[in-house]
Design a protein around this nucleic acid. Sequence first.
DNA 1: TCCTTTATGTAACGATCGATACATAAATAT
DNA 2: ATATTTATGTATCGATCGTTACATAAAGGA
Lengths: 202, 202
Amino acid sequence: MPERGRPRTFDRTAALRQAMELFWAKGYEGTSMAELTAAMGISSPSLYAAFGSKEALFLEATDYYTRTEGTEIWAALDEAPTACQAIENFLRQTARAYSQSDRPQGCLIALGALHQDSSSGAICDDLRRRRAENHTLLLRRLERGVAEGELPPGFDSDAAATFYATVQHGMSIQARDGASCDALMATVAGAMAAWQGLAGTA
Amino acid sequence: MPERGRPRTFDRTAALRQAMELFWAKGYEGTSMAELTAAMGISSPSLYAAFGSKEALFLEATDYYTRTEGTEIWAALDEAPTACQAIENFLRQTARAYSQSDRPQGCLIALGALHQDSSSGAICDDLRRRRAENHTLLLRRLERGVAEGELPPGFDSDAAATFYATVQHGMSIQARDGASCDALMATVAGAMAAWQGLAGTA
DNA sequence: TCCTTTATGTAACGATCGATACATAAATAT
DNA sequence: ATATTTATGTATCGATCGTTACATAAAGGA
């Protein structure tokens, strides 16, 4: 059953991808409507008809980002047999993804809008919620490690999840500063060197 | 020897401090001239006469930030007798400073302008240079630890400095998300748990 | 065929952006 | 006293911001 009315002449998903890459590279406030319409290859009224507003477009772009760009990073958590390997693979995938030269460096969720007091309260809140969800994913995997006996009963999964999430956030800034994949891997090695200490102090 | 011409009626340093706090809270692009003049209590021409431009004001504000806000964090590096204690104190001071409720959370140098492609190339470059300087400070302290025999000869000071700098950058985002000092201390504990591993693998 | 519905293209909206022209005021230098 | 120098206050500059009217084009439904 086809749509009513005149069909749109552009690929909505392709346009959304272009918007995502622009927001990813320049942040929410740093990206103008003029740049968006140019990159998406559509006019301003078409953009508003298809996506609602700049804010709604950003929210949809971050959702698209999560579904397309973040998958390999977070899939590593469930694929590895142990929590230790899961965290390490998670960080190594992060290092690889954040340093790719054919796309913006670092993470859209971490860098897209950091200044709350700006005109974009909803944007900032949405990104913060997504960061909290990521923390929860790490926490669940670590708790599973405790449940399976890999980690001691007193292991502070929440503190460890916070630590590794923080390292990943720092890697976004490091990547924005031009760090190579190897340089990011040095940080991964440092973070994983903490594993023995974290698992032992329980 | 007093100045020629009509003396200015406002405290230049106090105005600079107000500008710094605003840039700190909202970032370079997120802060408007109207907000700056309101917070500084001066008119737009007075601002331009005293500081040159918004960009020059930001550069001077970051310099003021480095001289006034960052001192306690980086002083910890030289005061502690061992490199291990130096890094730990450095991170603990960071946790405390980043979570103060009477000032913006996180670090101006880390969060002030992260998106290079924006209109602010010089701003971004300046902050990146300052971050590189901070990395160098960590590196020098670790190299001193190697020279003094505290750390083994093969210790990778550069990788360790990168790791701890990355953790600090991540703490800025964590603090922006509302993390308490205790929560940041959990990350510090995680980062210091890596010390044994880093010092031992050399 | 005519009506409804949706999309496109042109053009422009009011608001805000960073930055200034201009006249006036207040200090020193001669 | 006069000239010079610097700061202030008002008012506004052109450019860009996100957003939208409006007329037209292209589809399905009756």
